[in-house]
Design a binder for these strands. Structure first.
Length: 253
DNA sequence: CGCATTTGACCTGCGC
DNA sequence: GCGCAGGTCAAATGCG
């Protein structure tokens, strides 16, 4: 793969169907060499992962700072309704498992928001996340002409999880789903799961952040490193495939 | 017939 | 206390 070209498509052939008979015919010395190479690749990947985690941490810290600034500005704005302010408090504490001190009666746990891109022809406010939901209400809110739908998890009668789904004001093709609570049962089905775009709070920050950095060079560097590590070593891809198929421990370390 | 959805009424919290 | 807005309930309705 030529990462220096303008082609932004990125595919990795993991060689997921290696012939184990071929592997068995490889001399022992070569296997040792491959093992050493794999360890080196593993080190590289570990280093990359560490770097990514550090970048994520710094971005997360930056995000929290920006959100705090953003909320302080909005608190001073008299244009917002009282309920909207309450929602901002709620979003501020999303995923932090902190209840608002102003609302001790209402304990919100594990609140998360996801955005899901839909096709323009798809007018249904349905987010396929693998769980079974029963719609129990719909309301048109003041700040959004699109109706907000209220769902309860219907897979288990005792499951307390609720979901609100509403189309985004900025982009009607984007469904914003807010989940409250935690499922007390396993995921019934992994099939037909709609891939969420990203946490809504992160979206705003990332849009600004990505304007400030050289995304092209960053992406090219990352892609080049990952592609090089993964594709130049057939043994690595064979080992990955073996691990996936459950044969990883057949390797004699 | 049973279940899910719809929708108007009602409840609740909050600011003035 | 009143009004507003979001959230929930439950009877009516639709559908397979």
């Amino acid at each position: 793969m030529d990462t220096s070209s303008g082609d932004k498509s990125f595919t990795i052939d993991l060689n997921t169907n290696p012939s184990l008979q071929t592997i068995n015919r490889i001399p022992h010395e070569m296997l040792d060499e491959e093992l050493i190479r794999m360890k080196e690749e593993n080190k590289k990947l570990t280093t990359m992962l560490t770097t990514l985690c550090e970048n994520y941490k710094s971005m997360h810290t930056h995000l929290i700072e920006l959100l705090q600034k953003h909320n302080s500005v909005e608190d001073n704005s008299k244009l917002l309704s009282r309920k909207r302010k309450a929602e901002d408090d709620h979003y501020c504490c999303a995923n932090s498992e902190e209840a608002s001190p102003k609302r001790p009666r209402e304990i919100r746990t594990n609140v998360s928001t996801v955005c899901v891109k839909t096709t323009p022809s798809d007018q249904s406010a349905v987010v396929k996340d693998g769980y079974h939901w029963r719609k129990y209400g719909q309301k048109v809110t003041r700040d959004n002409p699109s109706p907000r739908a209220y769902y309860k998890c219907s897979f288990a009668p005792s499951c307390p999880v609720k979901k609100k789904v509403q189309r985004s004001v900025e982009d009607p093709s984007v469904l914003v789903a807010t989940y409250e609570g935690e499922h007390n049962h396993p995921l019934p089905s992994q099939a037909q799961v709609t891939v969420p775009l990203i946490n809504q709070n992160v979206t705003t920050y990332l849009n600004k952040f990505m304007e400030d950095i050289d995304t092209t060079s960053l992406q090219q560097d990352l892609v080049a490193q990952m592609a090089h590590s993964l594709t130049t070593n057939p043994s690595f891809t064979a080992a990955v495939a073996a691990a996936i198929s459950g044969n990883f421990f057949e390797y004699d370390y």
